[in-house]
Design a protein around this nucleic acid. Structure first.
Length: 504
RNA sequence: GCUCCGGUAGUGUAGCACGGCCAAUCAUAUCGGACUUUCAAUCCGAUGACUCGGGUUCGAAUCCCGGCCGGAGCACCA
């Protein structure tokens, strides 16, 4: 069969009608338990973000469902986009997510494999070195014509010159496809190029495969049975079909999922990187970023992300990621285990103060969790007079004559109010009295036992206030609930507590 | 522009290959109520969708055609 005959028949790929669905998780086509092989193939240009989580989680879920194997493959064939630190960051992110992989490969270790396959294609005259300027080639291809290189440089000798003679930009290796293909970009697409920028891992090499060579070669060599990828790769799937056909390989099953639109967060790895270098962001875990590291710091649990991505599934329709749904899933995980503490948001330099007189000696004992027994937090209040710190918002609602209940304590009546100090007198002890007086229920922090707190919001703003003394018992990394305020993750403890807002 | 793909409640999802059991599932959201020493959790109730128009059929969310809307790709990135 001549190369023309081969290329005429190649490049056809029949897509599965996505997948047969069962309740819950869609079935992969032709999936046999114990034989399924999948891959997660990130580009190591930075750590993983929410956008990667979908592919990582779904591959993991399917690998486990079919008792298959998941291969972590680093696609580092573009030296300009490789961050040497990213490999380890990605492994850490996956471990945190609970995604288990059984094999790991780096494409930069496998360049000889791609060279070998490229030589095979050239020796069959199915690929050729093209030395045309890009614009020239594009113009020819637009008008269904071949460039001269197609017939003159389709030899092993020409190919070797890519290693010995040409420099970056002077030559690429192109696959012979169909010069009249209705999709112009499929016409003799490139599969190898030369890059002068040294690769952090293999600095002696300068010829690199493009993804439409390295990906099908690896997918085949690694014995993958199913490939989950975004629909932005559909055209690449068509291109890669030529490689399979030329080399006589059986194609795996492809599932293309739709776009996941994620709003209100920074996701571009290159922009994040620049922002970090410029000092705009504090690091990869800056709470404004959509990295897994940032979500972790915000108190989002990996299982919440997994659940949301699992629910989203692999449909080809574009969808909008919902932070609300993620928070709802996360709340289910943290609510049962989060200790409760009192926190008031107020200006540290002139806090809202409530001065109560005539009050009895009182031991305020509140549970660390309203439904599960996690112990108590105790505050001893003075008899005679006692100062409390309040939320600015609660303070602003106080009016002379109001009866207000201080949570877990007693009821007071406001007698006088100035800018940030309100005077009050003890009114009564019981909750029933509070109800009878339609008293608002507010939380408080005992003045003198207050710990300064800085709550960092995901939008980058800081919210200052004070928490009760026992909050110091919460360890860094814990997610706790500040009552009537929301869940936060304790991020640091020194003279003050720094916390990151998780969600309401 | 060209090539390809998709459209179920605010969001996500099930159902669509083999039309009737779908006055359409589940989760989340929103609203109301119960409970509660948190504006959390929990419990109860309500709200809310088959993109539109034709066709096939006894019968269409499901099949066919067209419109509308949305998306992807058209790199010597992945």
């Amino acid at each position: 069969m001549s190369s023309e005959d081969i290329s005429r028949k190649a490049g056809e790929h029949n897509f599965e009608k996505t997948v047969k669905n069962e309740r819950g998780l869609a079935e992969l086509p032709d999936a046999e338990a114990g034989k399924v092989r999948l891959r997660f193939a990130p580009n190591p240009s930075g750590p993983l973000h929410l956008g990667h989580a979908r592919a990582a989680v779904l591959n993991d879920v399917y690998a486990k469902k079919y008792d298959g194997r998941l291969i972590l493959r680093f696609e580092d064939t573009d030296p300009k986009r490789v961050d040497p630190d990213a490999y380890e960051m990605i492994r850490n992110d996956l471990e945190w997510l609970g995604v288990a992989w059984q094999e790991e490969v780096l494409q930069s270790d496998r360049l000889d494999l791609y060279y070998r396959r490229a030589r095979e294609l050239v020796s069959k005259s199915l690929a050729y070195v093209c030395t045309c300027r890009q614009e020239v080639f594009k113009a020819l291809r637009e008008s269904d014509r071949a460039c001269e290189c197609r017939d003159t440089l389709d030899s092993p000798e020409a190919f070797e010159k890519m290693f010995t003679q040409y420099c970056e930009g002077e030559a690429v290796l192109r696959l012979k496809t169909d010069l009249a293909h209705k999709n112009v970009s499929i016409r003799d697409f490139p599969i190898m190029r030369i890059v002068d920028t040294p690769h952090p891992r293999v600095s002696d090499k300068k010829v690199y495969p493009l993804m439409n060579l390295s990906v099908p070669v690896d997918d085949h060599e690694l014995g993958l049975t199913h490939i989950l990828r975004g629909k932005d790769h559909i055209l690449n799937t068509h291109k890669q079909a030529y490689i399979y056909d030329y080399l006589g390989w059986e194609k795996p099953h492809y599932i293309h999922y739709g776009l996941l639109k994620i709003r209100d967060v920074m996701l571009s790895t290159s922009e994040m990187k620049k922002g970090i270098e410029d000092g705009v962001y504090s690091g990869w875990d800056d709470v404004r970023l959509g990295t897994l590291a940032a979500l972790r710091r915000r108190g989002i649990k990996p299982d919440a992300i997994k659940k949301v991505m699992f629910d989203v599934g692999v449909k080809q329709t574009d969808i909008t990621f919902s932070w609300k749904n993620l928070y709802a899933q996360n709340k289910k995980l943290i609510d049962p285990v989060a200790n409760r503490y009192s926190f008031v948001e107020t200006r540290p330099d002139s806090p809202s103060v409530l001065r109560v007189v005539n009050c009895p000696e009182w031991v305020s004992k509140n549970r660390l969790h309203p439904t599960y027994d996690r112990g108590d937090r105790q505050v001893d209040l003075n008899s005679g007079s006692q100062d409390f710190l309040l939320n600015d918002s609660d303070f602003s609602e106080l009016k002379e004559g109001n009866v207000v209940r201080l949570m877990g304590t007693y009821n007071i009546k406001v007698t006088e109010k100035s800018k940030n100090i309100a005077d009050a007198v003890f009114h009564s002890k019981s909750l029933e009295e509070a109800r009878a007086n339609k008293a608002r229920l507010i939380n408080w922090v005992k003045s003198g036992e207050n710990i300064a707190v800085d709550v960092l919001s995901p939008d980058g703003t800081h919210h200052l206030g004070f928490a009760e003394r026992d909050t110091l018992n919460a360890e860094v990394g814990w997610v706790v609930q500040f009552e009537r305020y929301g869940f936060v993750r304790i991020d640091g403890k020194d003279d003050k507590i720094t916390a990151v807002f998780t969600h309401k």
